[in-house]
Each structure stands twice: as structure tokens, then as C-alpha cells.
Write a protein that binds this DNA or RNA. Sequence first.
RNA 1: GGGUGGUUAGCUCAGCGGUAGAGCACUGUCCUCACACGACAGGGGUCACAGGUUCAAAUCCUGUACCACCCACCA
Length: 899
Amino acid sequence: MLPKVYDPKPVETKWSEVWQNEKLFISAVARDKKPFVIVIPPPNITGALHMGHALDNALQDSLVRYERMTGKEAYWVPGTDHGGIATQIVMEKILKTEGTTKEELGREKFLERTWAWYDECGDVILNQLKKLGCALDTGKDNVRFTMDEKRAKSVFEAFRNLWEKKLIYRGERMINWCTHCGTALSDIEVEYEEEKSKLWHIHYPLEDGSRGVVVATTRPETMLGDTAVAVNPDDERYTTMVGKRLLLPLTGRTIPVIYDSEVDKAFGTGAVKITPAHDPVDFALGQRHGLPIMQVISFEGRMTAVPEKYAGKSVQAARKEILEDLKAGEFLEKEEHYRHSINKCDRCHQNIEPLVSEQWFVKMKDLSAPAIAAVEKDEVKFYPSSWKKPFIEWLKNMQDWCVSRQIWWGHRIPVWYCRDCSAAGLKMSGQGGLSRISFKEGAKPIISFTKPEKCPDCGGSGLLQDPDVLDTWFSSALWPFSVFGWPDRTEELEYYYPTSVLVTGYDILYIWVARMVMSGIEHMGRVPFRDVYLHGIVRDKRGRKMSKSLGNGIDPLAMMEKYGTDAMRFTLLSQAIGGKDIPFSEEDVVGGRNFVNKIYNVSRFIQMHLPEAPRPMASVPENLELADEWILERYHKTLEEVRISMADYDMPAAVGALYSFLWDEFCDWYLELAKPRLETADKDRTLGLLLHVFGGTLKALHPFMPYVTEEIFSGLKPYLGSDKPFLLKEAYPRGAKNSGGTADAEMRKLMSIITQMRIVRAQFEISPTRHVSALVTSADETGLELVQKHQDYIKRLAKVEKLDIAAGLAKPSHAVTALSGAFNIYIPVDGVIDLDKERGRLAKEIEKLAAELAVSEELLKNGNFISHAPREEVEKITLRRTDTEGRLNRLKEITKDLS
RNA sequence: GGGUGGUUAGCUCAGCGGUAGAGCACUGUCCUCACACGACAGGGGUCACAGGUUCAAAUCCUGUACCACCCACCA
């Protein structure tokens, strides 16, 4: 005898191994089949499975398994991401524990170490995905890595292509610099956090020391780099000031007052200090007016040597000191409390310094235009569709993409400079601890995957590679085609591209999805995926993001350990509603666990009744009885619901339909009705249908809950008559819209009678084990025939021993009454009936019916309703009125006799 | 400053033009031979607010409030 409670652990361990060993998840080009392809959002090699991964991959796995079972060549392409900065930070931490640093190691050794680490630990996350049941082949030859050799070729080709089209360039721009990570970042890697701060009003006197202009600023320390003060040309307060020079406090320098219409008269004092080197707005304004750029903050986040006094101090320390000095010099006129947003690095959460620096940029306008067009034409469709608009808006407003990073781990920029003929340009400067090669000084770029033997211009051999690496997202952007070997025109690429759907959280819509769409169109000429399914973020119960610092994270592996993987998957899938965030709590997994146990126990029940010698038994026999027809109708309807939901990426609906079918209908009604038949000569036929429906339900559930279904299936296989080694090889059962049958309607009548009897039993506290007698009467002849024919159902499920069914039956004196549609139900009760209780019950019922009747009558009295509402609606209400009226009258009559 | 989504039972959410639904939680009865990770029954909602459209509105429209998120160079 199998244990009463399902134990997921051994089952999961077994199947995840078997599936991998049997190479169940590999895919090959199959011309006769339609491909269904998902490329996995490659998890970072340093990552550990968190709830976001669990959700994302459970969704993808369900889709892949489902599509494969519907007959498509489904391929879920596995891979990992090298994760530039994130990985480098992890490596640096490891080195620190070893008492060394990457600088000490040197670039080459550092990269060696990181590769070694990757070889050793880089597939931890893949093994965790395997545990999650993911239909991903984790074989070494199948797993792609964003920095492996083939992907490196893809990256080079993309770079070369962009370069040739002049869509990638090097330029000196204002960029976001993270002093902590020591690298430039793109705009999208910057987060904004609102902070309480102050707005300082500082007086800049005229050259002669007389009253000048007061500026308002949130960053007083940047004043050392001011090269102008700007006012609005329409601002009458400052008309006399323009053209004059102001004395910049603490420095002895003088700066001009200039006009710019961008200046907001209403803000602060209406006069803005302009620091072109350390503020994006000021930089742009400086460009317009040809202002000099004066850098006063270094790439290490420290003040540079102007004036000497502040040199080497951190920005924070300098601010404090400068404010004190301004106060001492009576320049500081006012301090206001002020809330504003501060730029933070999305990796390390330290402040971002806007700095002017020479970097590589991808020109976005030409890339975004076709992407916008494609999305507008729905060549890429969003689920939920509400993302379409923000996506387009983002593309429209996007700035050029800074793709160079001053770190070591990543794709090195494939650009070389000749030391011989562009010596002037090889300006070595310590920026973030790296030697920089200055393009603007005349260093000519040579684009090459490998080190060129000699300079094409002068033939010199002293070639130096650009020290920077590319943004990790540059390689991620190529993922949907790089995984298939692009730029090689492989058979795989041709067959699998474009992919079917991209599944990811909306949080990386812009940083990743948008760039894939643009890259796909640019390099492949076609969008990379037809659909984008954006799910929400898994949050804690209170709606907060799960994070290490809050300590509110729930570990999916722990949940899987405790409740089983299927349980956790089911829980996540049920909640992945329309791209909305998921408030996740452990309690919810209990529900999933219970469902898994329910499935397991159905199988246990069936198994108990199976003959010992296996033989194929599942079938839909001839001459079905009502309950059989009913469950088949419901089964097919459910499958159809699943099909529709899946086409819409509505996993909660799909999973919910199966849940309520199996639990509420199959178990609570059908199985209970089938039980007695298993003791009769009808046993095999009954088992046949049970196996047919349950086997099909297992298949239908498999994409969502692979383990428990596979385990049960493998046990039932010989009885199901399946020759398939795994559920995944089975065809997904097909539903039907409408069988045109009447079984459901008829069954519902009987179910309602049973429910009414149960209600009476519960209300009069009749022990659940006790059998009662009952009478069913009605003026509806065909109705009575139906009850007559299926009285066994009632006897069984309402625990009725003796059941009288006939027209015109009178209520026995010691009986309580219930109505079900056209039927009057009487249940004789032992001893004295609590008449008050019965009267009260019926009165309440009468009240309800009367109210119902009033609503219908009101409607039918309303001439406007009769004339405006569709005919079916009027008919429906008319019917309802007659029905309610009938029931009401019957009930009233019974109440009359009750005294 | 723009934009998006949300506001329905204690909680999480379905429903999106025709008598308010599910799961969980809660209450009662029952350890009935698949399952107490269970069965049966029950309580619980003026569908945020105000207008409008309609024979009919939780559902459509317009505002308001609150919550959440995204985008943006007001120093």
C-alpha cells in the first residue's frame, strides 16, 4: 500500500536525473514540424535561484512542455550570462578573502581566475533550474554562454556591423560614472532615489565685489567647476547682469552671466550655476554656449586640485567644508529643505557622478525607428498589451547607449590602435585605474577580432587593444540569434529564428527586451520574437520587493525542499496574473502542496482497484451512463479552456481550470459516484473511463507539475496503454468546445437535489454516517423520470436509504422540506421536529424567493425593458419569474401546513 | 512634470453590460474503506467616491481620492 501522503523528494531527484540522462529536452531541426522556441533569459553565472527565476522559468517550462506535447518542435535554449560588473564584483570579493586584489593579480591573471571560477561554479544556477524541473538540456554541448567562443564571434560581428554603418562611435560625453564600480554606465543602469537634502543659496558677487547674483544649488561642491551662471533672457531681475562677470567664491576665478531660455525663472533664485563637467544639463548648456569644461571631481569621486585646499577630499567631505567656507565668507545666504532624486548605481547603490569622459556609444535613433515600427505593427506583441505604449515611448525618447565599461570581465572592445602612427592619441591617463587611449587625440581605430599583425597604415606592429569591455547587455541583446551561431548562417538559425515568445519580468523590458528587438531587426533583418510575455515581480506578502537587505526573501529551493517543486510551481503559476506582481507567502505553497497530494491520492485510489496483471484498460466504453457522459463533457470543456488560456499566456486560468475540474468535479462528484460501480460487474468499464479521464488530466497537468504527473503516469502506464517513455512524449489531450450533450444540464439537476438534501442534513444535524429516507416529488414528469433513473446517485451521495419518487407525493408529517428547482424534497426526521426551526428556515427561504420574484416582476413591468432588451433576455427573465413564483407558492403551501 | 496599472468577502485576486465569484483564512459536523495536505455544510461584500451613458453598470464614459510602479535634465 502506498503511503497516504505524497513524498516529492525521491520522485524529483529521480526524474530530473532520468530526463537529463535520456536527453529528453534536446531539440533538432525538424522540417516537418513547426518550431516553438524560447531562449532562456540567461541567468548570471554568479546567481543563485531566487523567486523571480523560479517564476520566470516555471512559466517558460510550462509553455515549452505544453507546446511540445501539442506536437511542435519545442526548444528551450539554455544558457548563462557572464554578467560583467556583477561577476567582477563577486570575483573581487573572493580575491579579498584571499588577501589579494585584481590590481595585484593583473588583468590577464584576473581573467584566468574568473574563467577558472566559471568552469567550476558557473553551472550552479543551471543545476538549480534542473531541480525546478525545467525542460532544459543542461548538457555541456547544449548550454550557451554569453562569453563563449561562438558568442564572442557574434559580439564581434555585431560591433563590426554597427561600426561600418557608423552606428557605433567613440566620443566625449557626459556619462554616468560609478566611482565605486569604477566604470561608466548606461542611463538605464542608473536608479533614482529620492532623498531629503537642501537647496543652498549662494551669492556670487560681481568682479568688483559688489552685489552680484544669488544661485540656488543642491550640489555646492561642484561650484569649484562652475564656468558660468545662467539666467532666463526674460527674467527682469537679471537684465543688468548679463555680460557682467562674477567672482566665483573660494576660487578667485571669474565667470560670465549668460542667457539661456531653458532656465526656469520660477525655480530657486532664477539663476543657475553652470558646471559643464559635472551635470548633464549644464554640460548641454555649456555646449550651446561654448563654455569651458572644468573637471573638479575625479573618477575616484574625489576633488581634484583646484583649489589645493579641497584636493583629494571625497565629495561629501568637500561639500561640508565648502559650505563652512562659504558661510565664513558670507556667501551662503540661505538653506532650504529640499527633496530631490539622487542618481544611484543599480549594482552597488552608491552615488553616480555625472562626468565627462571618452566612451563608446551606440547611436540609437536609426536602431529604434524600425523597432518602433515593428511594435506598432504588432510584429512583436506584448502580453499584457498595456506594455506596448510605454515600450514605444521609451524607444522614442532614448539617448545614445554608452556601451564601454572600464572593467576587465567581459567582451573586450575589438578595436586596436597603432602605437606607431597614432602615438599622439595614445594618451595614457589614469581613469578608474586604467590606461585610456584617446580617440579624439587622433588614435585611429582598427576593428579586428584578433590582434592584427601590423598596422594597415604604417605597417607597424605595435598595436594596442582598447582597454575597455562592452556592456554585458550588448551581448545579451544578441542572444536570440547568437545562441544559434550567428553570424554563421546555420541551419538552426534559419529554423528556430525568430523565436516564438520571450518570457521575462517587466523590470528588464527596456534594458534587455528593447535592445533585443533593435538588435534583431538590425542584424537579422527580423524581429527576434513574435510575442513578449511580461510577468510581474515576486514580492513579499506586504508587497515589498524581496531583497537581501530587508531579509524578506523566500528561498525557492527551501520551498521546494519543504513542499515539493510541483507545489511551488503550481503556486507561482496560479498567481502569475496578467503581468501583475505576485505577493508571495509560504502559506500559499501549502495550497499547492495539498493539490499535489490530491492528485497523488486519486492515483492511489485508482491503483487500488487495478488488477495486478497490467493490461491496457483506459477507454471510453459504449453505453455510458449519465455521470460518465457528464464527466467527459466537463473534461473536454476543461481542456478547451486550457487551450484558450495557454494561447493567451494565461497560466492561472489554465491551471485553475484543471484544478477545479480535478478536485471539484472529478473527485468530489464523479469518483464518489464511480466507487460503488467498482464493486460490480461494471468494474472494468468504470476503471476504463476513470483511467481515460484521469490519464488525460495527468497529461494536461504535466506542463505545470511535471514531477508528480510523471511519477503517477509511469505507474499507470501499462494500464493506460501508453508506449511512450515519458509524459512529454505524449500528445496533449484535445478538448472540445461543445459536445452538444445534455449530460451537464441533467447532472446539475441531480447535483442540486443532492446538495439540498445535504443542506437539510447539516441544518438538522443528522449524523453524516446515518442513512435517511427521502421523498422527491414534482409536477415535472420528465424531471421525475430523470431522478427515478438516477436515484442511485442521490442515495449514494446524500446518504439516502429509502427514496420515494413520484408525482403528487404528500409531505409526511415528521418531515422537513427543501426545494430544488421543480422538485420538492421531504426528509422525514426521527422524533419531534423543531417546528420553530423549520418555520424559520422556510420563512427565510420564502423571503429570499420573494425578493427574487420582485426583481423579475419589476423588470417585466418595465415597458422600456420589454422594448429595449434583447428578446432572449426578456424570455430569460419571464422564465425566471415563473420558476421563482412556482417555488415560492410551493413553499408557502408547505409552511401553511406546518402549524 | 508626464505616463501606466490598481481600488470587488479578513487576505490574494477572478469577473469587465443582464439576479456578486474562487482560493486561502474563519465557523460547525465528521478521523465514512484515495486523501484530515480530507469530506460536507456555513458566516462574510451599499464591487473606493461623485457624476454621466443605458431599459439595465462592479462591468462603458468623465471627474475625485488614495495606493503602486515606470519615465523625465527643474538647478
